[in-house]
């Protein structure tokens, strides 16, 4: 990327798109980074409350979702390898699996949040308003950070869905796969963030 090759086709520069995606990933890292700063400050100030509050979260649920995201990362990675090898069928299959895994993740989240809501624990509820300070901060951060992460899952699904459509149409293929590659990068980012969210919320000791 530091060599300036000149292109006849000005409108297509795969390296530029990839670089652009990486730069965008940096901003996403710092977006979540801001929240991780808030998290670490409040955990530092309320160690006991955070410890007790985290016991409300189900470790098996978090573990399953972690594994789901890891597998989906692998399937996306495989789809990118296979499109370059020209194996369109495998690419499509892998993308479908990825989307299904993502959906499962969201469904799990739905039940997880739903259980909390049933106990009257949701932003703005009376229960939440009467929590002690440390608990309040923990659950505010929990809902906000996992919520924003879920939004990123949805954006990632849209990107992968578009890629899947274009693979099927033959618009993304073995010599033109930047879209899929970049959507994949984005998907790995979503996984990357979850890798930190999981221990920070579910595994506090």
């Amino acid at each position: 990327m530091e060599t300036t090759t000149h292109h006849e086709d000005l409108h297509r520069d795969d390296t530029a798109s990839k670089l652009g995606m990486w730069l965008f990933i940096f901003t996403e890292i710092l977006l979540f980074g801001g929240m991780f700063i808030v998290y670490s400050v409040y955990r530092y100030k309320n160690p006991v409350a955070f410890h007790i509050a985290h016991e409300e979260l189900s470790i098996p649920m978090g573990f399953i979702n972690t594994v789901i995201l890891l597998i989906s990362s692998a399937t996306v990675a495989i789809s990118i390898s296979s499109i370059q090898k020209g194996d369109r069928k495998l690419t499509i299959r892998m993308l479908v699996v990825t989307l299904l895994l993502a959906l499962t993740f969201l469904i799990n989240k739905y039940f997880e949040w739903g259980a909390k809501f049933e106990h009257g624990m949701y932003p703005g509820s009376d229960l939440m308003a009467n929590l002690s300070h440390g608990d309040m901060l923990f659950f505010s951060l929990y809902f906000f950070m996992t919520g924003l992460h879920a939004v990123h899952i949805i954006v990632g699904m849209i990107l992968l869905g578009v890629s899947l459509y274009k693979v099927q149409k033959g618009l993304v293929h073995s010599t033109r796969f930047a879209l899929l590659e970049n959507s994949g990068l984005y998907w790995h980012l979503v996984d990357l963030i979850w890798i930190f969210l999981f221990p920070l919320f579910y595994l506090i000791h």
Binding site: D13, D14, S81
Partner: peptide
């Protein structure tokens, strides 16, 4: 475009 003829990871590596 250097990215075109680059390394493709094998399925086994991913797994």
């Amino acid at each position: 475009m250097s990215e075109n003829n680059h390394h493709i990871s094998s399925y086994k590596d991913h797994l």
